[in-house]
Design a protein around this nucleic acid. Structure first.
Length: 378
RNA sequence: GGGAAGAUGCCGGAGUGGUCAAUCGGAGCAGACUGUAAAUCUGCCGCCUUAGGGCUACGUAGGUUCAAAUCCUACUCUUCCCA
């Protein structure tokens, strides 16, 4: 197994309050942080070509170990020397471990101390994921950042449940770190602990004791109120080492991204921009809609010659009217998925770029306030 | 000219005496979606409403009945078969 990637390097440039400005390098691929990563679960950012994703500016996307193991499987991926070559993606890839599927597919899996047994969602055949086997699968995928297998603790959970779940995830993290030893790729641990600050601190400390290349915060944005998420994030962040990237998993609502950057998070991923696009829900600036979103199906857009968002520079907004996009959506023309997905990913790119610029420039607080007014609905 | 079947809400189509403002689709309208079992899911969908109810409704007009979309009579129209 060879890979054309090299080790990940993280450089923290400076901070503004708790917010951080940095850069992650994978060989000649550079990723400015804070960064949002589009999700391409099975080797495709749904509806887009890799070129579409690249042209917006993205250089780091997600894949999923559980899903890629099922299809196309490691044999195919290895024969292509990994997912990058297979899908023709020139950027970097982070793979989630299957820990989220422990929660989202809870009905078809069983947990043991050894690992997770899935009756997989495609044909019911059993697949057994362990902290060690997930490392091997990720090696076959050849991703640049490997997430450890964890249990994404569901919400709500009692302190006792969250603690037992977190402690097991920490035991698994240690096993995964051992199994990963000879890998050239980066590996991130994942903080768990439900909504309990003491458990979150203990989890972070356990991971730091093991020592990872980056630290993720998992088990948030799983149905809890936003205030809960922020409280937990606020309490967890100080326990994370300064010189390593922090990754808040599964977060991508514009207001959550904004708040989490200010709380010191460097990396994010979320299906929201891509899934919402396919469901006809677009992110727009508050100058376009006070709610920050636009439902393309709405009758109000039937003859509108406006773009989705008059301040958006994306391919879709530069070329197509709301009326045409609505027509495509109503007529179930497949083109609409690409056009709407491009827009939503551009919106989050613009939001993150604006925040990076604000952190770099003078008067960051003032500029961040401007960004909040423009991108975040109240 | 003779015979048969049928006419239900925007459309398709259930219902064949009361629990029917009427199953279910579609269309229409609105909403949700946060490490993707999601091109998915939810709600509304005759009119009025202080949301408890009120009103008008199942081709048209009569009739039977405590009660009719459902039974009877006539008419109008549609489709099919025979001439």
């Amino acid at each position: 197994m060879k890979s054309n990637r090299t080790e990940m390097q993280f450089e923290l440039r400076h901070s503004v309050g708790r917010a951080r400005r940095g850069k992650i390098r994978f060989g000649n691929i550079e990723v400015e942080t804070p960064v949002f990563m589009p999700v391409g679960t099975v080797g495709s950012v749904k509806a887009l070509s890799p070129e579409d994703v690249w042209n917006i500016g993205y250089r780091l996307i997600l894949g999923n170990t559980y899903h890629l193991l099922l299809r196309p499987g490691t044999e195919v991926l290895e024969s292509f020397n990994g997912l990058h070559n297979f899908m023709r993606w020139p950027g970097a890839i982070l793979t989630d471990s299957g820990g989220f599927q422990v929660m989202s597919l809870a009905k078809i899996r069983k947990m043991t101390e050894e690992g997770v047994n899935f009756a997989n969602h495609i044909n019911g055949a059993r697949i057994f994921l362990t902290p060690e086997s997930v490392c091997g699968i990720q090696a076959s995928i050849g991703s640049d950042i490997h997430m450890v297998l964890d249990e994404c603790t569901p919400y709500p959970a009692t302190h006792k449940e969250a603690e037992a779940s977190m402690l097991r995830s920490m035991r698994w993290a240690k096993r995964a770190r051992t199994a990963h030893q000879s890998s050239p790729h980066a590996q991130f641990g994942i903080v768990q602990g439900g909504m309990f600050e003491d458990l979150r601190r203990a989890s972070a400390q356990a991971l730091v004791d093991i020592g990872f290349d980056g630290y993720a915060i998992g088990g948030l944005s799983v149905g809890e109120p936003k205030a809960e998420m922020r409280r937990v994030l606020d309490a967890t962040e100080p326990s994370l080492p300064v010189n390593y990237p922090r990754y808040l998993m599964g977060v991508g609502a514009p207001d959550d991204l904004f708040d989490a950057v200010l709380l010191g998070v460097d990396m994010f991923d979320c299906v929201m921009p891509t899934r919402n696009a396919r469901n006809g829900c677009l992110f727009v600036r508050t100058t376009t809609s006070e709610t920050g979103k636009l439902h393309i199906k709405n009758a109000a857009h039937r003859i509108s010659q406006e773009p989705l968002d008059s301040k958006c520079k994306c391919y879709t907004c530069q070329n197509y009217s709301r009326a045409y996009l609505r027509h495509l959506f109503v007529a179930e023309e497949l083109l609409v998925f690409r056009l709407l997905t491009i827009h939503n990913l551009q919106f989050l790119w613009d939001l993150m770029q604006a925040m990076r610029d604000a952190l770099d420039g003078g008067e960051p607080e003032l500029n961040l306030q401007k960004i909040r007014r423009e991108f975040i609905a109240t």
